[in-house]
């Protein structure tokens, strides 16, 4: 699975927690979940749970603590996918 494919799927995962959904069309590695997409921090665990369900992996919060921007989310997901193969 490529970074571009995960980026597209992340848009679906982030959508329920993003108020201005049009912002999702332009996200890139540097997009900050809280500062740019205005996702409330209380929803960050939801994002992790939804990513776990989507990719059938386990992401503990400590390994996910750097999931602050889109690029680091993709890094963590790719790492977990490679580990589970």
């Amino acid at each position: 699975m490529t970074r571009a494919e995960i980026l597209e799927e992340l848009k679906t995962i982030l959508k329920p927690y993003t108020v201005d959904k049009e912002l999702l069309a332009g996200i890139n590695d540097n997009t900050d979940l809280i500062k740019d997409l205005k996702i409330n921090s209380a929803n960050l665990v939801d994002v992790i749970i939804d990513a776990e369900a989507k990719y059938n992996v386990e992401i503990d919060y400590d390994s996910a603590e750097e999931m602050t921007n889109v690029g680091s989310c993709i890094d963590i997901i790719m790492k977990k996918l490679n580990t589970s193969e």
Binding site: V45, D46, I48, I49, E52, D60, Y61, A64
Partner: peptide
């Protein structure tokens, strides 16, 4: 969702 171990164990 909050009361699921999968959720609260991350908090």
């Amino acid at each position: 969702r909050t009361v699921l171990p999968q959720f609260y164990s991350k908090i």
